Simulated scan of single mutants.
Amino acid sequence: MRTSFTGHATEFAGLPVFGLSQSWTDEPPRLVPEAELPTEPGAVAWRIEAWEDDDGWDYGPSSMFRHAFEQFLELVDPAGVRALVIGSWGYAAMNAAPIGQLCAAADRLTGLRALFLGDIPAEECELSWICQGDVAALLAAYPGLEILRIRSGDADAAGRNGLAFDAVRHGALRTLVVESAGLSAGVVRGIADSDFPALAHLELWLGTDRWGGDTSVEDLAPILGGERLPSLRSLGLRNAEIADRVAVAVAGAPVVARLRELDLSLGVLSDEGAAALLAGQPLTHLRRLDLHHHYLSAEMADRLVAELPGVEVDLTEVMLPDEYDDRYVAVDE
């Protein structure tokens, strides 16, 4: 899946995104829709944001965002809302995500099935700076949630408001995406130790150690074993500085035999990792293998296509090492 950090999402969970933002000219601030309100709350993915330039640390979303979210719950029938896209909750580098406020609204957002927490482009906040919290609390609050997408840094500069994911069991979740410039081993282990019997798509952006990405292939072992993920059909281990080591582990991973899509894109995959993939278990059952943004030679790229007939192999965005022979993930800040 292609992801842009230069603008807001226009579609989420198969629905067009309808934006709501706080007016700066009204006192008190007023929530302003981008167009005429939809008559059916479930026909769109509602996007709520309240960006503001804030230079003080906080332990939660800004007061402006809290006010905007409460206005939203009064503006529409919350029971009819199926999808939410949460944009800036103040300045996201200084304010933790509105996880508590979202959890408190669960008894009103009874139809919520899809949540994107952190639709924040780079011009509003760099990915590695976005403060979150324990996002697993959202799964406990919303047992019917089917899609959860998180965009987050791992921890802020003061060590507070870091992304966390305590192990949970959730019977409805079908899609889990965590976009990060540096995903910690603790978060990955929490996800790996969770029980997701319905999860069909799992996507983790591992990032670099520069931004807290200390995940190892050993931390990924329960995911690659697949015992707690019986429905998994699409696996993405993306934006990885350890892409070659991930490829070696994937080559012998039991979960791969039942996948239809495998995504190792956005990282620093080289011929070493690609050769391990070809030398491992058969991959010809895959529908798609996404390797875009890679450091493969032309010869290895040709081998992949030739040895995986019938598989859609994405080898676009050929990268070259810099003058110091360094390679870079696609999103490293």
Rank of each mutant, 00 (worst) to 15 (best):
A104D: 15
P41T: 08
L229G: 04
E124L: 15
A185Q: 06
W205Q: 07
I86N: 06
S297Q: 04
A249D: 10
E52F: 00
A240I: 06
G213Y: 09
E307N: 00
R113M: 02
Y295T: 03
S88T: 13
V255W: 04
R233Q: 12
P38K: 08
P28I: 03
M94S: 14
R287K: 14
A35K: 13
D54N: 12
L206W: 01
S184G: 13
S231L: 01
C131R: 15
S234G: 05
W51D: 12
L75R: 13
A251Q: 00
L20Y: 10
T215P: 04
Y324W: 13
G153K: 02
R189H: 07
L289P: 07
L115G: 10
V248I: 14
C131W: 08
A140E: 13
A185T: 04
V246N: 07
A247V: 05
I86W: 00
H292N: 15
D54I: 15
G111F: 05
S270E: 13
D156V: 01
L15W: 05
S180A: 02
L266R: 14
E36G: 07
A136K: 06
L206R: 00
F65C: 01
W205M: 02
P309N: 12
S63F: 10
A68G: 03
P98H: 01
D54K: 07
E124F: 13
E333G: 05
M319Q: 15
A157K: 14
L232N: 04
I86R: 05
H8V: 01
R189D: 05
